[in-house]
Simulated assay, not measured.
Amino acid sequence: MASAFGHALVGYTFSKVLDKNQSGILMALAIISSILPDIDVISFKLGISYNHWLGHRGLTHSILFSIIWALLLSFIFGKQRKVIFFLVLFLGTMSHAMLDAMTTGGEGVGFLIPYNETRYFFPFRPILVSPIGVERFFSKWGWKVICSEFIWIGIPCLVVLGINVFKNKILNINAE
């Protein structure tokens, strides 16, 4: 998996770029949603195998889970902005699986669970897989993961955020 830091940055980026109102609640929900799929690591403690549809990178990493989660939060928190809430939350949640499919480790991602239990990786897998657990994360390998994520997640997010700020400044100048 990519680390919680990498996932959170992508959720933050989606909220900043897609939400013109800059809602704090949507930003917080996007960050949480982008990390949430890894709740499935509890499956290890429950004795569920990695490759089971309830295992790590299974159901909570699926397209169906992202849709249901985004719909649920959109109806609870979206008020008159349900569509933008859904879009940001779906993309934030789904980005988790997409990033995990770009890592160098694991057993793949169950994008189509529960319809198909096949696990997938993308052909381009530059992101070093993050160790599971706090102790293992703060190690030499954890540092390498952070550096990898800075290159493959951090820089692209910063570029997108920078373009968004520039675009907004230009639009504000033209509106005056």
Rank of each mutant, 00 (worst) to 15 (best):
A175V: 11
G108T: 01
V109P: 02
V145C: 10
F90V: 04
I68W: 01
T104G: 14
G105A: 07
P123N: 13
I153A: 04
S66A: 15
D38W: 07
E149G: 08
I48N: 13
S95D: 05
K82Q: 10
I32M: 07
G162Q: 12
K20D: 14
A101G: 02
I39M: 13
I35C: 10
F77H: 12
H7S: 06
F5L: 11
Y120D: 02
D40F: 11
V129E: 13
R125W: 05
P156Y: 09
V134A: 06
K169M: 11
I163R: 07
I113G: 04
V134I: 15
M94P: 03
P123R: 12
S74Y: 10
I42S: 01
L99D: 01
G162A: 05
R57C: 09
S74L: 06
F124T: 03
F75V: 02
S148Q: 12
I25Q: 11
F85Y: 15
T93N: 14
Q80D: 15
K140Q: 09
A101I: 00
K45M: 14
V83C: 03
F111A: 09
V109F: 02
T104K: 13
S49F: 05
H61I: 14
G58M: 08
K144V: 00
I155M: 00
I173W: 10
F137P: 00
G92N: 01
F124E: 04
A28R: 10
N51F: 10
V160C: 04
F5Q: 06
I25M: 14
L72D: 09
W53K: 06
V17D: 04
F166M: 14
H96K: 03
L161H: 07
A70Y: 02
W69K: 01
G55C: 04
K167M: 12
T60C: 14
E176G: 14
W141R: 13
G162I: 02
N172L: 13
I155V: 13
E135W: 09
I42F: 14
K79Y: 14
A175Q: 07
F75N: 08
F122T: 08
H56R: 09
I146H: 03
T93H: 08
I32S: 01
Q80N: 15
L71W: 06
P156T: 06
K82P: 15
